[in-house]
Nucleic acid binder design. Structure first.
Length: 591
RNA sequence: CGGAGUGUAGCGCAGUUGGCAGCGCGCCGAGUUCGGGACUCGGAGGUCGAGAGUUCAAAUCUCUCCACUCCGACCA
């Protein structure tokens, strides 16, 4: 490919909107061009990389027994209604109507489509297990696209769907996909952490994200400091919204005999003091309570009232030094959305008072309240809480004796330095989520009628499912984010737009000009599709070198008056170059 | 969707008592240069985001709409 003919050139003029390295470099080097917010053209250079990434994913997916296919982009809305995902918050479906007024969703993910396909294929146990996948454009009506290719409204995703006979069989599939993903990212030159994560609107019981650690990433996750690797192929981590952690008081622990745990373990009834109500002329915050009662944060109970989409009131209780994780709370209460109640609702509907909420005294019997207690709560002894009246508190409250929750569960927010369940300190990290694998189980096959195969006994049996996604554009951006320097991109060989970047330096008036061009043509012939030849005659050498660094092909070749019939070879990212005979290069390369 | 902000040439911007549409970079042409983003001369390029209003006169004042950016909640 001659650079002079290449559609999409490098530019010195960069929009100030591009902040991230990957965004800047991809725009500047002519890989992508923005259309409107969150929608990008892939220019020839960018598309070459995109397709090379695709090729690697395909090779690995096929190697793991996957079969590529393609589903329609317009999904009949009835299918999404079948799984109740037309109303789910999370992402807004983009909808279109055809001339008959029939509504379709522009696919943002394709579980329903694949289940619908499979249930109409009349399958038996002999056909299972199988894994089918596609590369297709996905639409997400993101409220706020950002970061160049990192978060867009339209992108190509590889999405795979596995169908197994049962859970045991699925577990093997899941592990195989986990390994396949690790291998894919490894081949792409990306080191990933496998992070236990929240499944959001997808459904299912567990899932893992593949995260490339990066400051600019939007995924927040936790890892154990100094942990031994749990996976052969990658580090282990947990997303903030699913990360479990010990509730032991880590900072300046009191003597063992006096810790709440020790007291609870002893269960000596004497240690539990009688509950009593006291005046509390204090403000509404936890801090106010600490000051007024002269107690530590962890000696208070924090109660936050929420309202879910079914208009159920939920009291979330945690130890005073902890925060509530609303995603965890959603899961524990089977809510789709939660919002904190307003002061007005607390007073009028809950018959309580802001800042003095409590799960203990019986409030208005008209309003049923679901109380969820964090696992930290039963460990607390003789704690202080509000009394559901202004300026009244309860002291020496104890779980079980004074109140019981509908459920004791993990609903607290993990924090940097908290101890993992293995007793190791947790460290917060950020990363770019490039891939995701989900256990779906019977989630979709329960919701969609007839998602069954005929088992060995001739009886219908539901499919056990999983799904697996990789965002290609985001992966591409992650590569650039990890592999660049101040001059430009450093593409790994396997995904570089071209393996070789040839620069010819000569002027038409030079006596050696023809000879130089002759060598260049020879290289062009042999290297064919993997050579980008900067053949421009009207720009200075400096411009060509700068552009070569910016575009970032792994191997730079220079032929000039100075190379004297040979070729200068330099690897991107290295300083030293070698003069090599033309034939020797061709031999080595063609090997 | 909540909060903040911006729309003038491809990009970055200037443009106030309302009175000829500007600068820098980039782009095109000619010439001089020619191994790390050269120089000279010449040139092209605008529905001033859109619509309506006020006015003799609107990039500038008023209203409505649209687009985009940043901060928050969500995802590959």
């Amino acid at each position: 490919m001659k650079y002079s003919k290449l559609f999409g050139k490098t530019t010195k003029n960069l929009s100030k909107d591009a902040q991230l390295a990957s965004h800047k470099l991809l725009l500047q080097a002519g890989f992508i061009k923005e259309s409107t917010a969150g929608k990008y053209y892939f220019l020839p250079l960018g598309w070459r990389v995109h397709e090379k990434i695709k090729k690697i994913i395909k090779q690995e997916m096929d190697g793991a027994g996957g079969q590529e296919m393609l589903s329609p982009t317009l999904h009949p809305l009835e299918l999404w209604a079948e799984t109740n995902r037309t109303s789910t918050t999370g992402f807004e479906l983009l909808k279109v109507k055809d001339r008959n007024g029939h509504e379709f969703a522009l696919g943002g993910t394709a579980e329903e489509m694949f289940v619908d396909l499979v249930r109409h294929m009349n399958l038996t146990h002999k056909d299972l297990p199988f894994n089918i996948y596609q590369f297709s454009t996905k639409f997400r009506d993101e409220l706020r696209p950002r970061g160049g290719l990192l978060r867009v409204r339209e992108f190509v995703m590889k999405d795979a769907y596995s169908f197994d006979r049962n859970e045991e069989e699925f577990k093997k599939t899941y592990e195989a996909m986990k390994k396949t993903y690790s291998r894919i990212f490894e081949r792409l030159g990306l080191q990933t952490t496998i992070v236990e994560s929240d499944n959001g609107y997808i459904g299912g019981e567990y899932c893992h994200e593949f995260v490339v650690e990066s400051e600019v990433g939007e995924s927040k996750f936790f890892v154990e400091k100094n942990a031994l690797p749990r996976e052969a192929l990658a580090e282990w981590g947990a997303h903030e919204d699913v990360c479990r952690f010990s509730r032991a008081l880590s900072e300046t622990p009191p003597p063992a005999s006096a810790t709440p745990q020790a007291l609870r373990a002893g269960q000596s009834p004497q240690s539990l003091k009688p509950l009593s109500e006291v005046d509390a002329l204090r403000g509404p915050t936890m801090k106010d309570g600490e000051k007024f009662h002269k107690i530590a944060p962890h000696e208070q109970l924090k109660t936050v009232a929420y309202l879910n989409e079914k208009n159920e009131f939920i009291f979330a209780c945690v130890r005073g030094d902890l925060q509530i994780n609303e995603v965890k709370l959603c899961h524990q209460t089977s809510s789709i959305t939660l919002r904190p109640t307003t002061n007005d609702e607390i007073i009028k509907q809950l018959n309580s008072f802001p800042g003095f909420l409590s799960p203990i005294s019986q409030i208005s019997p008209i309003t049923p309240i679901r109380v969820i207690a964090d696992i930290s709560v039963p460990q607390m002894v003789n704690f202080t809480t509000g009394a559901n009246r202004e300026h009244r508190d309860l002291i020496n409250a104890n779980y079980e004796r004074d109140f019981k929750a509908e459920k004791v569960a993990d609903i607290a927010m993990v924090y940097e330095g908290a101890l993992s369940e293995n007793g190791l300190p947790l460290q917060a990290k950020r990363g770019i989520e490039v891939g995701n694998i989900f256990q779906l189980g019977y989630h979709y096959t329960n919701l969609m009628k007839g998602a069954e195969f005929v088992n060995e006994n001739g009886m219908p049996q539901k499919f056990y499912m999983g799904c697996y996604g990789i965002g290609l554009g985001r992966t591409l951006a992650a590569i650039v984010e990890k592999m660049h320097d101040d001059k430009g991109i450093l593409w790994p060989e396997v995904v570089a737009p071209f393996r070789f970047h040839l620069i010819t330096l000569t002027s038409p008036t030079s006596p050696n000009s023809l000879k130089i061009l002759d060598i260049a043509h020879k290289l062009e012939q042999k290297l064919g599709d993997e050579l980008l030849w900067d053949d421009r005659e009207d720009v200075s050498a400096g411009v060509k070198f700068a552009d070569a660094d910016l575009i970032g092909c792994p191997i730079r070749l220079v032929i000039s008056e100075k190379t004297n019939g040979k070729i200068e070879v330099k690897k991107r990212g290295e300083k030293e170059s070698n003069l090599v005979e033309v034939d020797k290069i061709l031999q080595e390369i063609l090997k």
